[in-house]
Design a protein around this nucleic acid. Structure first.
Lengths: 187, 187
DNA sequence: GTCTATAGAAGGATAGAC
DNA sequence: GTCTATCCTTCTATAGAC
């Protein structure tokens, strides 16, 4: 009899690859390294991910799912768009201050592969566009205009790049912006 | 008599390498590619730059020199710290909207080689620290506090990451911030 | 002849892919 | 495990300027 395929192998490989890709960069990590950490054979790796680009795309897709889950939980307790916006920004600020933080995986990939339009690049670009759209919706929800959305997006981009020490500055700032909109509305 | 060494060879190689490194990324560009674009032999390349890391360090040092020259010119016509700060931010906004813009070379390198502490990484980190210090000095000069410097740094970081379309948003925003400080001072 | 330059192969390691 | 390709680096061979 043939050996039964191990369940969850794909996840094991993907988890190993995701950790390595995020910590050291996609280009810096070789498939052999992924195999070593995942503890499987090369053939099994290529069976589940026919190329490194597909593995990278799966890694970014996983990162997206995790991020969406985190944000969904953060928005769970929020009532109203103002609360949601604050929860969103707070979550981002928290994430960049976490120990292992090494930048935004999507922006990092696009920096590592500039001008690329392969599958992982599409995943990254799509995520960023969707995140921007989500922000726009929340800002519109609290009565903010396009300028406010642009500004908050600017801060979020800066948050992902700069030193984690400034996370609180960003959160407080956006909180002020939200409050001022509410005051304006109250007139 | 011996053949005279060609003058300006180092600059030719460095210019070629800088263009390639910036456009495609340091990791993506091979030494053979540099040689090809520079139009010289490998021997000469390794004579001037004994390793790729040294070539990358020279590339970042060149980028720093060019940036400092640009900023120095931008600050030439400015009188007073408020004008200087505006000129600085305007210059950055202009640079990110230029056609060939592909991100900040220093931040890009640090993303390509995360956790690295070799010579090019040091050049990049030193530049960013110095740029931050220069910003702090200008903000202090107009009577701004540490929070204002943090906020502007956040915007600048966002500027280097995000879409060029938001450059004008950033410039106008910082202009408003400067104006409000002046108003506060006038009280 | 002597030195520098280019072109290209070779070494050794490592990449992705099968 | 193996295959091919490419990486950085070194070395050899050849052409050209003095």
């Amino acid at each position: 009899m043939a050996r039964a395929p191990a369940p969850g192998t794909r996840d094991t490989i993907l988890t190993a690859a995701a950790g390595l890709f995020y910590e050291y960069g996609v280009r810096a990590v070789g498939m052999a390294q992924v195999v070593e950490v995942a503890g499987c054979g090369k053939n099994l790796l290529y069976k589940h991910f026919p190329s490194k680009a597909e593995l990278a795309a799966a890694y970014l897709t996983l990162a997206r799912r995790e991020r969406e889950r985190t944000i969904r939980e953060a928005l769970r307790w929020a009532d109203g768009p103002a609360d949601s916006l604050m929860a969103l920004v707070t979550e981002i600020a928290d994430s960049v201050t976490r120990p292992g933080y090494r930048g935004c995986p999507f922006r990092n990939y696009l920096t590592e592969f500039p001008g690329e339009s392969d599958e992982p690049a599409m995943v990254a670009l799509t995520f960023l566009a969707d995140a921007r759209a989500q922000l726009d919706a929340l800002v519109t929800g609290i009565g903010g205009d396009a300028l406010m959305a642009d500004r908050i997006w600017l801060i979020i981009n800066g948050l992902h790049t700069g030193p984690p020490a400034q996370a609180q500055v960003a959160v407080d700032w956006i909180k002020d912006m939200i409050s001022s909109v509410r005051l304006t509305e109250a007139l």
